[in-house]
Nucleic acid binder design. Structure first.
Lengths: 195, 195, 195, 195
DNA sequence: AAATAATCGAGACGGTACGTCCTGTCTTTGG
DNA sequence: CCAAAGACAGGACGTACCGTCTCGATTATTT
């Protein structure tokens, strides 16, 4: 029944929450028992909700991905110019960051659901097609680079060295300048100095 | 004396080599026995060289860092223009990538010795001072972003989706355009489109 | 509760039983894994019951000692004449022999609980006091000798060279003649032949 | 050549000596390294003399057996009356005791060479034949019992509770009374008291 | 006396058992 | 009927010892 399922979902969520906290604290060395205790639950119960440590981790990743997917959906990427879409993406992903990084650190990850990936890939595809993106790089490579940039920015916020807004704007700024189709800055300087 | 130590070092190196290979293949699930066997060595011997799995991993990271430091030293960053220095850095780091990524994936990591970090920090500092770098971002933030970009590029090479040269040039291109002090491309478009 | 403890005790007993069997078969070379498997139990479980190999052995010895103590209690040593008491002791101890010897062979041994030793010591003390035992030997020495005699008899039964009854009666016969206070047989012969 | 062999033998002997001492001290837990060091010799050298721990132990036993055989030969068992022979045996064996016990405690043992066993078996055979021994027990059983008695006596000397002479004379006394063919002491008392 | 051979210690190595810890499965007990 | 508790098999970890081996260094032997 609905009520039972709701409870079930809330328990699962609590476990995931605790797992995220404990893993962030103790790293991959955290045992299932520690996580279960942190969630105020028996170890056996934990296994009733997740078959595996791996599955639990992936469920954790899914929660992060879902949250991310929500933000991305809200961002309405397809209705705004490329530049604005990138800005919104950077802000949204970096804001979700803490959990995102937790996963990234582990060996498991890469659950980035289609709901996260596809809109972004579509964005890059469109930008290449309509000429707002300089030609020469595949959408996949661009995504990898953009994702790395974001990862770097999140890391920079980890030591509380700077706020989310600043990090997001730095990413946006750098990336847009870097990939824009506008008259390329005279970086040929590099070649010339080498000749 | 010297000979014995040389042998000892070569054995340690062989173990680290095998460990890198096995870990890349099987991930963190690889057992010490698997690694030892892959190195053609008994499990006990492995423990004679590294007290811990953790210590072995960290020795692996050290080797990676040392290799990287070598490449960076050879790159003579301080004698070439900023643009060329970035290009060399990207190529060098991505080339060392495979091992580097293996560590990055694990929980241990981050041994990046001063010999790796300092030259790069100095490079960014100099570039900001002499005006080849647009003002507004701290050298540390730039380093984080550059490092993320590289990480993304290495990831893109993982599935053999593209070669090291292409990845390096993509990173160089994007980063230099992104941070150059030249007349900014008219990205104000973003703001205008929002009005 | 009672039920759980009962099961726990029965498992422990089964392990001890198997351990006794395997150790008798393969000697001290038997590994903990062999013993665990013989008991139909995982190695880890074995360690849940006994912290050490040593502790397991000593628990084994305790079981033997307890069994022995039971027989000795049933023998009612203090209500029968010395001669009958010795006869009962010999029979009882030799019958318990197999386990007893298994321990004796090992390096651990000598757990002979007070419940085993004290009644026997009391028996010898009483016999010396009431004159049924020839004076001149301390109760402890007599116990050592008696114990050695029994050990020898058990050994004689090991190769199935003779039955428990015969062995026990030989011990009883020899020991009683040997220590009785009755007019000494003319063994002076020895002295005379030496003069 | 003779000299080399002599040295070799003396080294082997020294090792055995040390092994006996260390094993007596630390029990079977003593490692080969401890034994080697105690003998002032490298572990490798120890293995150059004895292929195995087992072989070393058995060599140790052989030394004990040889020493015992010497004493038994000197005892001239066949030229003296049974009683005197027993007395000499008890003294001789108990005197050799310390090593003898060390082996007896271990799991290996039972090397008692024929030179030890045969003269004793012959002694019992002769005594049965010439009537100085009560009929009814096989020579083997008598040997087992006698051996047990001796073992018990040696044990009694272990805690320095009494000297070798006293222990030997107690064994001699008890055994001779116990097995003599003389008019049996009226131990029928046992049956009567049971009525 | 010099060259050659034997023997030594030192210590690395592969292998294996030990005792510990964690995972994933199962059963028992209580709310 | 489901959660908590906890026992269980299995397997990896890190430690210690065994028996094998190779290395130089120190002796003895031989020429």
């Amino acid at each position: 029944m609905g009520k039972g399922e709701a409870l079930r979902d809330r328990t699962a969520e609590a476990i995931i929450e605790s797992a995220a906290a404990v893993l962030a604290e103790r790293g991959d060395a955290a045992s299932m028992e520690e996580i279960a205790n942190a969630a105020g639950v028996g170890r056996a119960t934990l296994y009733r909700y997740f078959a595996n440590r791996t599955e639990m981790l992936s469920a954790m990743a899914d929660v992060g991905a879902r949250e991310l997917a929500d933000r991305i959906r809200e961002a309405d990427l397809q209705t705004v110019p490329f530049e604005e879409a990138i800005a919104r993406l950077a802000r949204g992903i970096i804001a979700t960051g803490s959990k995102y990084i937790a996963l990234g650190t582990d060996g498991t990850r890469r659950t980035d659901s289609a709901e996260v990936i596809e809109p972004i890939r579509a964005l890059f595809g469109r930008a290449i097609a309509d000429g707002s993106l300089r030609r020469g790089h595949s959408p996949d490579l661009l995504m990898s680079l953009f994702s790395g940039l974001i990862r770097g920015a999140i890391e920079a916020t980890r030591g509380h060295r700077l706020g989310i807004e600043e990090a997001a704007s730095a990413v946006t700024d750098l990336f847009l300048r870097g990939v824009s189709a506008e008259p390329s800055p005279p970086r040929a300087k590099q070649e010339r100095s080498a000749r």
